[in-house]
Nucleic acid binder design. Structure first.
Lengths: 121, 121, 121, 121
DNA sequence: GTGGTCTAGACCACT
DNA sequence: GTGGTCTAGACCACG
């Protein structure tokens, strides 16, 4: 976890789980670390993890079995992908396009820069 | 101003000024609305405008003449463009690329969606 | 059992037994499944079944014969009905009436909707 | 607030606001008590109020103006009514119907009891 | 002043 | 053991 950024910790955990589902590191039906375990792993207060899990549950990514723990829900991967794509297309993309216009950056220019960046990492 | 978003209002003003400079709506050497005027226009607390102006001044976009007001600095347009491009290329672009990868979005797909969005404006 | 609801599992079992008594699926004097059997059937922790049985015993619905098992008590059906009716009339009905008032739902409207719902079962 | 019930306090506050909107005690566009004010009124921790407000905002009942406070949203009344009606019809009504069946309570019986109850209160 | 987040620690119901 | 709620108190960004 990155404690020195603007992004709330609970959101960082939320995103982490989503990403691990998209990466197949967490597969549908498996149990995810308990609130307390995750809190210990992340060096974070259990309440903070709780909040992330609650939001994930509200979106159908996690399901809960009482007294047992949280599990990756069925269709979690599809849902996660849909959520992310929607966010990207609806919120981020328009901002990007608008900014490129005012800055006079073209798509061609962009695609020339990208190979350099992705080649390094 | 959009009061119902997460983006701080002072940042919205900051961005607005930058954009107007890039659009030549504000040209170098002209006087920009006073803190109070701008606050009245925007239906916003003067403190908020003050903060935006202060940050713009720190970046050399605005210059202050005490008792007279704020002026668009020399080279403001070039500076604004440099700031924005740098931000975009160094910070935003890598995030975008990374996200597109995990979401499986291609550049071709993106360019198909964009005309629809930009066609509206 | 429904693990994904807010209703405690032990209460779900409690309700199930009551309902089966009212439906004559469980008749007075018969032996009910042992805690372990029921737990196995329901895919549930024996403690959970135990709790349901204990509460049923406290209300006189079940009687326990040590070393043999639990039995449906004499007058179980009458008791079950009394408990339920009392709960319904004293606790639930006033809440329902109050809510219908604030929502502007009439009894006529309700009875139009119900056939649709009950027609399915 | 009722601290001795099963119903979480934050939900009680949530419901209270919804009810006051339905009662026209809170009208669209007005500012609702700040988190801290409400917390003081209710003798409750600010975090608890915060949670209620956040959920209300997520449902579009409240809107937020940064640094100013929460306001009753446009269409709040209609939304509140829709939420409540949906809950009632989808969740509560089927339970009621099912219970009436097993208890052998008829609608006629019900409507005879109700005038007595509502007459008193 | 406003809301937003986080921690530490507690208590509770449930399995 | 599990999660759910709550408190007290703190710190922060924003207006």
């Amino acid at each position: 976890m990155d404690f020195n950024t603007q992004k709330p910790i609970f959101l960082q955990i939320y995103d982490l789980v989503l990403e691990q589902i998209l990466n197949n590191q967490l597969t549908e039906g498996t149990r995810i670390a308990s609130v307390r375990e995750m809190a210990a792993n992340m060096q974070v207060n259990p309440n903070t993890v709780q909040r992330a899990y609650t939001e994930l549950q509200a979106k159908g990514i996690l399901t809960q079995q009482r007294g047992i723990g949280y599990f990756i829900g069925a269709k979690a991967k599809a849902t996660a992908l849909a959520i992310r794509r929607d966010e990207f297309m609806r919120i981020q993309l328009p901002l990007i396009v608008r900014q490129m216009k005012t800055l006079g950056i073209t798509w061609e220019e962009l695609q020339n820069v990208i190979p350099v960046q992705t080649g390094i990492h």
